[in-house]
């Protein structure tokens, strides 16, 4: 026993040289982890159609679509020049202040790691709607995207969204902080249609998602739409392998959403704020079909 204690005493003072260098060992162990990684897939030309628009900054594309006044009338996309919606009767907003917007993101969980890769904005310019889609083809362009957002929100801009207060605006604000841009974009006036829609139709419709509002208020169904939940995968697919096919469908989905937002907005202008709740009878609740 004394022997052990004496030896332990000696041992404490000693250090032995490293036998294996940690970095070399790490490489080997990482290499073993790599074996578990999934196999890469090859790609075909159909996967990579060209992206629309022009490069605004390295990694940021801008795609613009104009809809002229005549076509608006025909398509029912026209709005009065001044708007005073029933859910906000105190305000009067001119049509050219409106910024209808929607984003597509790398996920839904929030936090500093959430990337906004597509920002769609619909605004009135001259005598028609101007639709702008800012697409981030490289995460390095994030700052440029945030600046575009801040510019869109500048002046007397009035935001219109569907669930933008809880999701899109906080996500953009996180990005502003990350890039040290102290803007007041998050303070811009904002009509989030989810709230008036919910007040009027909760318990009447099966849910209050945008696609449901579109179907119930406008009577439109989408057919070839890529579900919004597929957007994160489509963007990663593009970054990893350059596949653009599904990314183009995400851009189309974003345009569908903006058009739906505009139509729901227009329809909601006609729904009195104190809309009487229609009693729901079991078995007659319209079920949502679109994802």
């Amino acid at each position: 026993m004394l022997d052990l204690r004496a030896r332990l005493g000696q041992l404490r003072g000693q250090t032995a040289p490293a036998v294996v260098t940690p970095d070399a060992e790490w490489s080997e162990r990482l290499a073993r982890l790599r074996l578990l990684a999934r196999e890469r897939q090859g790609h075909t030309p159909q996967d990579t159609p060209a992206l629309p628009g022009v490069e605004l900054a390295p990694g940021l594309r801008l795609h613009e679509v104009r809809v002229s006044a005549l076509r608006l009338k025909l398509a029912g996309l026209d709005l009065p020049d001044a708007l005073r919606p029933p859910w906000d009767p105190e305000s009067t907003v001119a049509i050219d202040q409106l910024r209808l917007f929607d984003t597509e993101t790398s996920g839904l969980c929030g936090g500093a790691g959430l990337k906004v890769f597509l920002l769609g904005v619909l605004r009135w310019q001259g005598d028609g709607w101007l639709l702008r889609q800012y697409l981030m083809t490289s995460p390095a362009a994030e700052e440029a995207l945030v600046r575009a957002w801040v510019d869109e929100c500048a002046g007397d801009a009035h935001l219109v969204s569907y669930n933008g207060k809880r999701f899109d605006v906080p996500a953009m604000r996180t990005l502003e902080t990350l890039h040290g841009l102290a803007s007041r974009a998050h303070e811009a006036a904002h009509w989030d249609l989810l709230y008036p829609v919910r007040r009027a139709f909760r318990g009447v419709w099966s849910d209050c998602r945008l696609v449901t509002a579109e179907r119930m208020l406008v009577g439109r169904e989408r057919h070839d739409d890529l579900p919004g939940s597929e957007a994160p995968r489509a963007w990663r697919e593009f970054l990893a392998r350059g596949h653009t096919r599904d990314l183009l469908r995400v851009m189309q989905h974003n345009r569908y959403d903006l058009e739906a937002l505009l139509r729901v907005f227009k329809a909601m202008l006609q729904v009195p704020a104190s809309a009487p709740r229609v009693p729901v009878r079991k078995g007659r609740i319209p079920k949502s079909k679109a994802a």
Binding site: G59, S106, G107, L108, C109, G110, G111, G113, K115, S138, P139, A140, E142, P232, R233, W235, R236, L239, A240
Partner: peptide, 15 residues
């Protein structure tokens, strides 16, 4: 995702 000198988080999870 590596972009030039930076590595960006692009996954849809909250690690």
């Amino acid at each position: 995702h590596r972009d030039g000198a930076r590595w960006h988080w692009i996954d849809d999870s909250y690690p």
